[in-house]
Simulated assay, not measured.
Amino acid sequence: MPPFAGQGMYSGIRDAANLAWKLDLALAGSAPSTILDTYTSERTVHIRHAIAMSVALGRVICVLDPQEAAERDARMIAGKADPAVVLPPADPPVLGAGLLDPAAGAPGWHGTLASQFPVDGGPLDDVAGYGHVLLTRDSAAVDDRPRG
């Protein structure tokens, strides 16, 4: 993993979290061991995104030409270093199909990683906690989900 976006260890933590809850369910007999087969399909798309994002950020950081560096710096200052303004646009960090694969009868349950963004009451992690959270713009989307 290129070092520019700080995703190496963070990706490892997400990988460990992904495997931990699945191993817990499989070892407890609450889920079949085939639950572990979903790991690669869920994580591959996202990790490729993280690598591409890190490489793109490296191209912004590692500018050797003085003129290009001056132009980059002027763009950063003009955009107040807001990543949404000064960095190249990137695709969202989509999670691949896996345990909640629409083709397997779980329509539309996989999505993207959630950003740490402000919500009523403070940062998302402080309000929602650190477990699994389903975020949706459509409250009806939750009504037909199994409760656990």
Rank of each mutant, 00 (worst) to 15 (best):
Q7D: 09
Y10L: 10
R14A: 14
D15S: 04
A17T: 05
N18I: 10
A20T: 05
W21L: 00
L23D: 01
L23C: 02
L25N: 03
A28D: 03
A31D: 04
S33I: 10
T34L: 06
L36A: 03
L36T: 11
L36E: 04
T38H: 15
T40Y: 13
T40L: 15
R43G: 00
R48F: 08
H49N: 00
H49G: 00
H49C: 09
A50Y: 03
I51M: 00
L57P: 04
G58W: 04
R59A: 05
R59S: 00
V60G: 07
C62Q: 03
L64M: 05
D65V: 00
P66G: 10
E71P: 02
I77L: 05
A78Q: 13
P83Q: 07
A84K: 05
A84M: 06
V86Q: 06
L87V: 05
P89C: 11
P92T: 10
P92E: 12
P93T: 14
G96S: 13
L100R: 06
A106R: 00
W109N: 12
W109A: 14
Q116F: 11
P118Y: 13
V119A: 11
G122D: 09
G129F: 09
V133E: 02
T136Y: 05
S139D: 10
S139T: 00
A140R: 04
R145V: 12
